[in-house]
Computed example of a mutant assay.
Amino acid sequence: MDETCWTPLHLSFACSNVHLKAYVDSKTLAEREILSYGSSKNAGLEIVTLACGLVGGDALLSFTPLSVAMFLCQLTSSAIEYQSLRFLEELLGKIPIIHIDDVCDAHIFCIENPSINGRFLCASSSSVSSAEIASYYQQHYPKLQVKPEYLDGPTREMGLGSTKLIEKGFVYKYDTKMILEDCIKCARTRGDTGL
């Protein structure tokens, strides 16, 4: 999977609901449309899109962001966030992840480099399965009770080609462990019960 890959439209997925599917379809259509203006010789626009993975880490918000809640859904037993996490995994094979600080730095990097244009996949070099996230929490936070069904899941491999941004000189600072740890920190700071 790399920047040339697009989410297929109008497919049905086992973990999908009408809202998730509409969100993904509208996001894909909007990105394709805006990129078409950047490729038009007459438009005179330089367009950059960053297709970000699931964003984790701490936040400046007074509440736990939805994307962080998706990372933690196997600890909180939140069915809605777990369905969203599984939908993302089903859609992409594995879950591309990125820390919020890397997202911010990637945006600044693209703004400060006028030679950059086009579409970039913005995700740390690792992608994980929902079962790998659950296994991490079970191993490092045994008191938080991960349900056994969360430890089962697809074991397929996925090649994530987010090297285009790296080739331009961008450096990701956060790995999987750091992202997951900062998600726990974010929820605990905001007083989320059970964590």
Rank of each mutant, 00 (worst) to 15 (best):
P96F: 07
Y136S: 00
P154F: 08
S135F: 05
I95S: 00
L160F: 07
S126P: 02
Q145P: 01
V128L: 13
G159K: 13
L160M: 11
L144M: 13
F109T: 07
S129D: 04
I98D: 03
L151H: 06
Y141M: 06
S115P: 06
D25W: 05
P154R: 14
S67R: 01
V18E: 15
T76F: 03
K94E: 04
L160C: 08
R119Q: 03
E112V: 03
S129F: 05
K27Q: 09
E90D: 07
L29Y: 12
H107M: 15
Y136N: 00
L35I: 02
H99L: 07
C110Q: 02
S62F: 11
K21C: 06
K94D: 04
I97S: 07
Y136I: 00
Q139V: 09
D58W: 12
G56K: 08
I100W: 02
L165G: 04
I98L: 10
K143G: 10
N113H: 15
G56D: 04
I133M: 10
T28W: 07
L121P: 00
I111F: 14
S124F: 06
S162D: 09
I133C: 05
L45I: 11
E132D: 11
I80H: 12
R156M: 11
A106H: 01
S130I: 01
Q74H: 02
V24M: 12
P148S: 15
S77F: 13
V24R: 04
Y136M: 00
Y37F: 15
Y136H: 10
T155E: 09
Q74P: 03
S130F: 01
I95N: 00
D102L: 08
E46G: 11
L54M: 12
P96N: 06
L75G: 03
C122P: 05
Y82T: 15
A51M: 14
